[in-house]
Amino acid sequence: MEWIRLVIGAAFLFCGLAFFVMEIYGIFKYDYVINRMHAAAIGDTMGISLSLAGLMIFSGLNFTTLKIALIVVFLWFSSPVASHLLANLEVTTCDDKDKHMKVYDELSTLEEELKESEK
């Protein structure tokens, strides 16, 4: 029984670590902040919640488990907001927006697409 718990918990923990590896691969692969943020958010949500779920299985049913669950819930609230604020910072302080993130005027692009579809 104990060994089964160890195996299940370790499986969760290694899944979390795999997500961390993906995160690190992502931040070195992409070359712009917003794309990197997309990779980093994976670790903030999936990585930590899976690895902490594994640790919850290890620790069993007690008060510590509740606190670990509270960490996961806290990160689910705070991490998207942090990403939103960082994106806000990047959009505000970026000097060459057109190079990295070109914003199309919504109406005109719609019209162009409609014209193309008519043709």
Partner: peptide, 18 residues
Amino acid sequence: EPKNDVILQTVAGFLVPI
């Protein structure tokens, strides 16, 4: 400074009491 960020305000409403 940016003010009245609705997303931040909603989350702060949850988190500050916790």
